[in-house]
């Protein structure tokens, strides 16, 4: 294993933090609901998973509960902005704050506590023996592998099944969707709830594997970056994989660059500046015309 392989390996590990949240948000936004609460939901997932892994020692249970808690947050968001037609931006910001607050209270006794179990790397038989790629792709932990399956699956559902057509119809033109017998509210609820659950998994991945300890604001803006990655991947789960791994690379590269004696605080701005640069690029008019946001994104239905 050389430095570059290590860099790629770590980039994928770092990108997976972003990937679940991004995939979940793609699902929600395809149905027409913008969830700005990702940052908070990730924190909530992070602390629930961390706390549970310490009290129970079960990694699987921790992940499942983090997913459930994320779903719950998504449920609150959809109740407010689907049923009650609340402003999605405001509701999302509120959710981000509320979840951040709750997770800091939840985590008050876990600051500085060492992890009890962490997700360890599992070598995939045969595949992990492939030179170079085997190490990069198939000597990771189980959540990384799960993402390999979830992303294409989500793509298949969105673009090859009737359910996916219905979801996209809800996000583009809910009134017309309703005229084809689609229960717009039900679909928006389901997608938002699941999207929240995915953000919960992102959080769990963070504290169970990537940075296995708890501090306040552990997510450090990754939730917001995921929102940008949804735009960068133009609402496609497959492009999201590339976008997230690339951003994983941006994050890892700062540690690598630190070895070149560059200032760590200034290097710390790389992911954020890269985010701004990335969404500026996709916002260029020509690209935006090819693949735009879901037309009804952020709008309540029915409108008054």
């Amino acid at each position: 294993m050389n430095d570059l392989e290590l860099l790629a390996h770590e980039s994928i590990a770092a990108g997976t933090v972003l990937l679940y949240a991004t995939l979940g948000e793609i699902l929600a936004e395809r149905s027409g609901v913008l969830n700005l609460g990702l940052e908070g939901i990730m924190m909530l997932g992070a602390i629930t998973a961390f706390a549970l892994s310490i009290t129970t020692g079960s990694v699987v249970l921790s992940i499942l509960v983090a997913f459930a808690v994320g779903c719950l947050a998504g449920l609150l968001h959809s109740a407010v902005c689907v049923s009650m037609r609340g402003n999605q931006v405001v509701s999302g910001l509120a959710l981000a704050m509320l979840c951040a607050g709750i997770s800091s209270v939840l985590g008050r006794n876990y600051v500085g506590v060492p992890p009890r179990t962490i997700l360890s790397a599992v070598k995939v038989p045969i595949l992990s023996e492939i030179p170079c790629l085997g190490y990069i792709l198939f000597q990771q932990n189980i959540l990384v592998y799960l993402a390999y399956i979830v992303a294409p699956l989500l793509w298949f559902i969105l673009f090859k099944t009737k359910i996916g057509v219905a979801i996209r119809a809800c996000g583009d033109d809910p009134l017309s969707a309703e005229s084809m017998g689609i229960n717009v509210h039900l679909y928006r609820y389901l997608c938002t709830v699941l999207g929240g659950g995915f953000a919960g998994i992102s959080g769990a991945y963070l504290t169970l594997s990537y940075t296995p300890f708890w501090v306040e604001n552990i997510t450090a803006g990754r939730g917001w970056i995921s929102l940008a990655l949804v735009i960068l991947s133009t609402w496609s789960p497959l492009r999201a994989v590339l976008a997230c791994y690339f951003f994983g690379f941006c994050e890892i590269s700062q540690y690598w660059l630190q070895t070149l004696k560059l200032n760590p605080y200034l290097l710390g701005t790389i992911p954020y500046l890269a985010t701004i640069a990335a969404i500026s690029v996709v916002s260029v008019e020509k690209i935006r015309k090819l693949v735009g946001a879901p037309r009804a994104l952020g709008k309540p239905y029915p409108e008054d």
Partner: peptide, 24 residues
């Protein structure tokens, strides 16, 4: 004012309206 989703194809619309179709 037609209730059709601009970004979807005709086939996708008809699939949505039919109870027999699951995959496209």
């Amino acid at each position: 004012h037609f209730r059709l989703v601009d970004s979807l194809t005709v086939a996708e619309h008809l699939a949505l309206c039919s109870s027999e179709v699951r995959f496209l």
